[in-house]
C-alpha cells in the first residue's frame, strides 16, 4: 500500500476513534454536570418563604408530581395535606372564613386534620409534615 493511502487509512481510524471518544465522553461530562434541580428527594419540598403566605390562607405546592395544599393557620402554625380530593380527584382549596378545606366540585369538606366532615369524599386527606427551616417552609412526608 502506498504511504499516501496508508495515511488515509490511519486518518479514517484516528478520526473515527477520536470522534467516538468524544461521543462517549460528552454524555459522561454532561452526566456529571449538576442538574437544575439539585436533589432527588421528593421526601421534602420547600413550599416557599414563610412571609409569602398570610396567616389563615392556603396555597397549592407541587410535591414531586402531587399537588399539596399548604395552609398557614396562625403566625407559626402550618399544616399541609394532599390537595387531591378523595372523591373525584379535584384540587381542594382552603376556605379561610370557615377554616376548613373545601372541594369546589361536589362541596366536599374536610376539617383541619384532613377528616371528612361533609359531602361525598369517601376518605380523609393525607397529611404532610411542615417544618420551618430558616425562612423556608419545608413540607415532608409524615
Amino acid at each position: 500500500m502506498p504511504p499516501a493511502r496508508r495515511n488515509i487509512v490511519f486518518w479514517i481510524f484516528g478520526g473515527g476513534f477520536i470522534g467516538s471518544l468524544i461521543s462517549f465522553l460528552y454524555p459522561v461530562v454532561r452526566f456529571l454536570n449538576p442538574p437544575a434541580v439539585s436533589e432527588a428527594s421528593v421526601n421534602e419540598v420547600v413550599g416557599g418563604k414563610g412571609q409569602d403566605l398570610a396567616p389563615n390562607a392556603g396555597k397549592i405546592v407541587k410535591f414531586g408530581t402531587q399537588p399539596v395544599l399548604l395552609i398557614r393557620l396562625g403566625q407559626t402554625e402550618w399544616r399541609a395535606f394532599s390537595a387531591v380530593c378523595t372523591h373525584l380527584s379535584c384540587i381542594v382549596q382552603y376556605d379561610a372564613p370557615r377554616k376548613l378545606i373545601w372541594c369546589a366540585c361536589h362541596n366536599g369538606q374536610y376539617d383541619l386534620s384532613g377528616k371528612v366532615i361533609a359531602g361525598p369524599p369517601p376518605a380523609p386527606l393525607k397529611e404532610y409534615a411542615v417544618h420551618l427551616r430558616g425562612e423556608d417552609v419545608v413540607i415532608s412526608r409524615s
Binding site: 454532561r30 452526566f31 428527594s41 421528593v42
Partner: peptide
C-alpha cells in the same frame, strides 16, 4: 430514597437515562 434517586437519574440528570 433509592427509587426516587434512580428516577432522578433517569429524568433529571443529563444523559442519566443513557
Amino acid at each position: 430514597e433509592a427509587y426516587e434517586s434512580v428516577q432522578f437519574i433517569v429524568t433529571r440528570v443529563a444523559f442519566g437515562w443513557l
